[in-house]
């Protein structure tokens, strides 16, 4: 189990991470989500002992990052952001270097190399220089490096950034298969990425955690609104505004008048459905309804609202 406790990181006068707390249970796939510059990478860098926290701590089982830095590094496989590789090496030499650093040599290396190469689909490129590889293959090499010592914990910082859609799907499948037996933490600024792979997500913005839970939990806890677009003919603006009084749960967000056609955006809580009352009201006023469409708040909107500046007020 990994426990992040009151973690703070200052870069000079800039507070990149501001006292965050969360837990990752064994075997869990945790999505670490946030817009660019939210403090995701900084947090992961502290968890992998690359950076020391300004205050706070990260506890991995009984070890903590300050006192047991080397022991923790042995437990963790880490794919840093932008996947830095020694491009002047070939894949075999690079993996051999990684393996030696992890004290896997001789027969054990050969055996593990075969497994890793198969897992990451590197069979065809093992003797190629990394500089010759495409971005997708480089990402596989980065993953191979991270999993070579079969770590208990896998930390991937934006594993799919910069890849094309096909490569993203491939890498996602690969990550999913890797995550089956491991504690996996992956960061992303793309929601779908996390939604599809992670058991749980932690959303971070401006160095603080703004949400923590499973997809369903987040959707449920987020008391969003449904937006109903109503397009009507033969109506007056004042009349449309009257909906709010006739149907108490509804509020009118805005009305656009276009050549006698009124488009109104109505809002009401997710928990109720006043559409038939709105319809009845329209009929009683002898409006012609051209369109009535509902827009439910999605997880994407939850994410947007949580991470866009000033979004909380709207939510």
């Amino acid at each position: 189990m990994i426990r992040v406790e009151n973690l703070v990181k200052d870069y000079g006068s800039l507070r990149a991470v501001n006292g965050i707390n969360f837990q990752v249970n064994d075997g869990e796939i945790l999505g670490f989500l946030g817009p660019n510059g939210a403090g995701k990478s900084t947090t992961l860098k502290m968890m992998t002992t690359y950076l020391a926290p300004t205050s706070g701590n990260v506890q991995v089982d009984d070890l903590n990052i300050l006192e047991h830095s080397l022991e923790i590094r042995r437990l963790i496989g880490y794919l840093p952001e932008l996947n830095p590789l020694y491009v002047e090496m070939n894949v075999y030499d690079y993996l051999q270097f990684v393996a030696s650093a992890r004290e896997i040599t001789g027969q054990a290396f050969k055996k593990r190399l075969g497994e890793v190469v198969d897992m990451c689909g590197l069979r065809g490129v093992i003797h190629k220089y990394i500089s010759e590889l495409s971005k997708g293959y480089r990402q596989r090499v980065g993953l191979a490096q991270a999993i070579f010592h079969d770590p208990k914990i896998l930390i991937l910082d934006e594993p799919s950034s910069g890849l094309d859609p096909n490569q993203i799907v491939e890498i996602r499948e690969l990550i999913k298969s890797l995550g089956k037996k491991k504690t996996l933490i992956m960061s992303s600024h793309i929601l779908q990425e996390i939604e599809l792979t992670a058991d749980r997500m932690v959303i971070i913005n401006k160095g603080e955690i703004v949400a923590d839970g499973t997809t369903e939990e987040l959707m449920r806890s987020f008391k969003g609104k449904t937006v109903l677009t109503l397009e009507v003919k033969n109506a007056h603006e004042a009349d449309v505004n009257g909906i709010a009084e006739a149907v108490r749960t509804v509020s009118v967000a805005k009305i656009i008048n276009q050549n006698g056609t009124l488009t109104a955006q109505l809002e009401y809580p997710n928990t109720i459905d006043p559409r038939s009352e709105i319809f009845d009201y329209a009929v009683s006023r002898r409006w012609t309804i051209l369109e009535m469409s509902r827009y439910r708040v999605s997880l994407e909107d939850v994410f947007r609202t949580l991470t866009v500046e000033g979004g909380m007020q709207n939510g």
């Binding site: 860098k45 992998t48 002992t49 690359y50 080397l70 022991e71 590094r73 042995r74 963790i76 880490y78 840093p80 932008l82 830095p84 590789l85 020694y86 491009v87 990684v98 650093a101 992890r102 490096q145």
Partner: peptide
């Protein structure tokens, strides 16, 4: 090139 981060997180 960023490889320092890789190197420094090896044991």
């Amino acid at each position: 090139s960023g490889t320092m981060e890789f190197l420094a997180t090896l044991p």
